[in-house]
Design a protein around this nucleic acid. Sequence first.
RNA 1: GCGAGUGUGGCGAAAUUGGCAGACGCACUAGACUUAGGAUCUAGCGCCGAAAGGCAUGGGGGUUCAAGUCCCUUCACUCGCACCA
Length: 948
Amino acid sequence: MNYLAHDIEKKWQHYWQNNHTFEASNDSEKEKYYILVEFPYPSGSGLHVGHVRSYTALDAYARMKRMQGFNVLFPMGWDAFGAPAEQYAIKNHIHPKEAVQENIKTFKGQIQDLGISFDWSREFATTDPEYYKWTQWQFLQFYKHNMAYKTRKDINWCPNCKTGLSNEDASGGVCERCGTKVVQKEKEQWMLRMSDYAEDLLTGLDDTKFADRIKLGQINWIGKSKGAEVDFKVADTDQLLTVYTTRPDTLFGVTFMVVAPEHPIIETLKDKITNMDEVVKYQAFAKSKTEFERTELAKDKTGVQLKGLMAINPLNNTKIPIWISDYVMMSYGTGAIMAVPAHDDRDYEFAKKFNIPIIQVIAKSFTGTGDSKMRADKPVTNREVVNAIIKHPTENKYLCVRNKKFNWLNFVMGGIEEGETPIRAGIREVIEETGYNDITIEKEMEFIYFDNFYAAHKDVNRHITCYTVIGELNSLNTVERSEEEAALADVEWVAEDELLEKLTTEAHRYDASRLINGEGALTDEGVHINSDFVNELTKQEAIDTMLAYLDKNKLGRAKTNYRLQDWIFSRQRFWGEPIPLIHCDDCGWVPVPEEELPVLLPDVAEYEPTDDGESPLANITEWVNTPCPKCGKMAKRETDTMPNWAGSSWYFLRYMNAHNASAFVSPEALKYWGKVNWYNGGMEHTTRHLLYARFWNQFLYNIGLVPNKEPFEIRVSHGMILGSNGEKMSKSRGNVINPDDIVKEMGADALRTYEMFIGDYEKDAAWSTNGLKGCKKFLDRIWRIQEKLNDKDGYTNEILVNKTIKKVTNDLANMKYNTAVSALMIMLNEYEKQDSITKDDLRILVHLLNPIAPHITEEINEVSALGKPLCESTWPSYDDSKTIDDSYEMVVQVNGKVRGKIEVATDTNKEEMESLAKGLDNVKVHTANKEIIKIIVVPKKLVNIVVK
RNA sequence: GCGAGUGUGGCGAAAUUGGCAGACGCACUAGACUUAGGAUCUAGCGCCGAAAGGCAUGGGGGUUCAAGUCCCUUCACUCGCACCA
């Protein structure tokens, strides 16, 4: 008995099609379930094996859900606007819509060959005028609610694609599509006020069940940051320079200000700036850098001081210089910062480069550990001390002393006496404690710290303010130490790489790490110093206190910023939805009346983007010139088109009611289908597309057009299918697997089964033709198992059946396809071991495998006359009490090592388990002459005998 | 730099959440059946060892009767974000 995969696959695909098996009803008594997989861009290269993975996965889920009695909506369509179709059209001088139609035909054929149970009655493409009519209509809703505006601003411009890009499209400073370096170009652009929704997009995540990594991606992209705006007066002017900072508590540490090169204050106060030439030159320099260079070549700080201007610290009226530098971005915060070089890496680097003073306002504070923790019953003494790090004259070792009584090993340390500098004190202490007297100390570490501890040698608590000095011995010359000192401690030289493990005191190890790693800004938490009314407070206390102070004195205010910016919604390309607005010299921007929608893309011969940054549509005068809908005077159409994210921002709504000609979707359909229950897509879309779609939906919700604020309940993303060499599949790498070839050679079921078995669904996986063959073999064995059918009823192995139903049901619902397939392989292996199997046995197997391999299972079901077609059948249920075997292999361990196994009844009690375990010969061997300390018995698992 | 994730046989991977590490599959080895095998079946298959046994989940340390799983530390790779104040 043999079968031809191709024939039976075609047969059942026709059956499903002719019977409208997978068409969802908008009017059903059943509970609804909406499963969505991202619709593809129908590229010319056809379906990728990666598509097969996610489509099969969601198909399997949809098929199971249908059998479980749900009214499942599982639609498919085409995201067909976009550059490749346009490129193709430019090259071949045909209208992009023709290329798109051709590609859709290919894609659809390929998908249908796979037997994916999409509801094709709801199919559409974003390029259909019946669809983009409603995309335009929704844009007008944005416009009417003041959510769309046109502005002149520097935008990301791709010189190759000749179009503006959103920030999301230009991440990394290169064009998402072609990889060309993006440049800044000033242009008028339509924008959507997405930043207004930043908070809602953030909090809305709580109403979703997205995977954590996806939520995190969204959270990072929105980039919420809490801080404050602080107003600095500019001396001798009436101007305020407002900065954004997350650390208002460090305001006493500000030693300079930095504004972005484009900051308007430069223009406003240019008459006061005495070095305008230099400033203008720097502005030009900054602008000439692409975004890429600005970030990638970030290592070196550049900048110019605005001479003639000084800002005034609002707390203490200190005058502070103002600089411009491109490390401050106009697009974030206020485009100006207060620089606190002591506690910010970038400010530190800048201050070092331009020799600007540094004021420490936070001191690291240690609290002692173990025996050195402060004791409540002892007095506290305050001291100023010096900590001397002294290098050996010839070797890479440092001078340490070991306290004989307590065995502490530390750097030389001692009190600073009245009128003494830390350096003088350091030299004196080294001589006193070690006898070395040929010392040079030139450097004092930038930052002091506090150490609070119980000083056992003096039986007091100490609060010390520590100054660290760094020096070296010129020679090993010594003088005699006092007897007292010599009795107290030994001198010890410690190699640099051993300091961190050998030093006793945490504070000294900290000093050592700064010595080894070099000094930089002190960004750790600590206690405030040099800061008047926030002194001695911790970070959060100081922030709160400072905010209250600023607020009370009207010097600033709490402020939350977001990385998320408004959505640049214009593209200067032909192949996109025309923005349905008309510009009239008298009336300004006027929306195209709704009854005139859609604004159709004209049929023309040329689609090339233009060098001057205008859309190719701008050249089509008969299309551009049109009467103003308001006053009738000749006016001009907007020639920019929408980004290709527009159509995909609401397609999930359209599926609910795909061919509605009078509304984007009917309220009834919206109400019935509600949220997408399960949305699958690529990891590459978890920031952009997912954010745009959520924003779009939240807007529609706010104006009362959709019933749910969040459109998607669960979002999962699949891993990529890589080439057999573990690299991304690409023509240039020559590792592309074409699904058509596999379907032809092995059949769709084998391909589907293999891709489900390949590994963790959410992880990338490399293609393996051998693995595929294994799955094909599995299906062949399934076919042959029919030869073992007997005419008995019931299950040959009831436990196996119930176990497998449970496993497969749970695995399919949790995207664990690989283990679901494995459970079915185990079931088949068991069936093969038996002399014969019943129809009931086989019926379960084909039901459980059907979601993954739908064709062969339908055929077996029919050939062996097991019942009505599986697609009309019900999902098997299991009895939990019959998933447990009545016996198991009890493991017996001695000291955690397996020494024996016995088959015992599942209901064996603890006492019996214990005595059975002790009775094993091998256990006796390992426990002989030993004392049994305890016995751990884990019911239904093992016995562990602990002996000594 | 920050954030997240991953690391288990020759390979893809499992491991009811702390309880026999390596299920299932691939590859491989031996055998059977065959005119033939890229078919099918049977057996074997982490490493060392003749065996008893020992060693094994990137490395090191810890908690525990028991650790792939928990804690600390370290290394490597992958992916996001990146002068975001």
